[in-house]
């Protein structure tokens, strides 16, 4: 299945590819700088005990993002 979704709704344990970052300004810069450039493979590692934030493996580092940011990254199944 090649449906595109956003990073926050990808299931825990799945691998996804970044399609694009739909944010502007500083948020966009920060997300890109974390390595979320198109084509990057991201693993969804875990949710915090209360659901949010979610931890991702982005280029070798485990980074937690809140829904506000992770929902701005469009991804496709990998």
């Amino acid at each position: 299945m090649y449906g595109s979704t956003t990073l926050n709704s990808a299931p825990v344990g799945s691998f996804v590819l970044v399609k694009e970052v739909n944010a502007e300004g500083l948020t966009r810069r920060r997300l890109l700088d974390l390595g979320l450039v198109p084509g990057t493979r991201v693993e969804v590692i875990r949710r915090s005990p209360v659901g949010d934030p979610i931890a991702f493996n982005i280029r070798g580092a485990v980074i937690a993002l809140r829904q506000e940011e992770s929902s701005k990254v469009t991804v496709i199944d990998s």
Binding site: I63, A64, R66
Partner: peptide, 10 residues
């Protein structure tokens, strides 16, 4: 609004 939040879990 809450600003962007990134936290590394080393």
């Amino acid at each position: 609004t809450p600003s962007s939040f990134t936290l590394e879990l080393p």
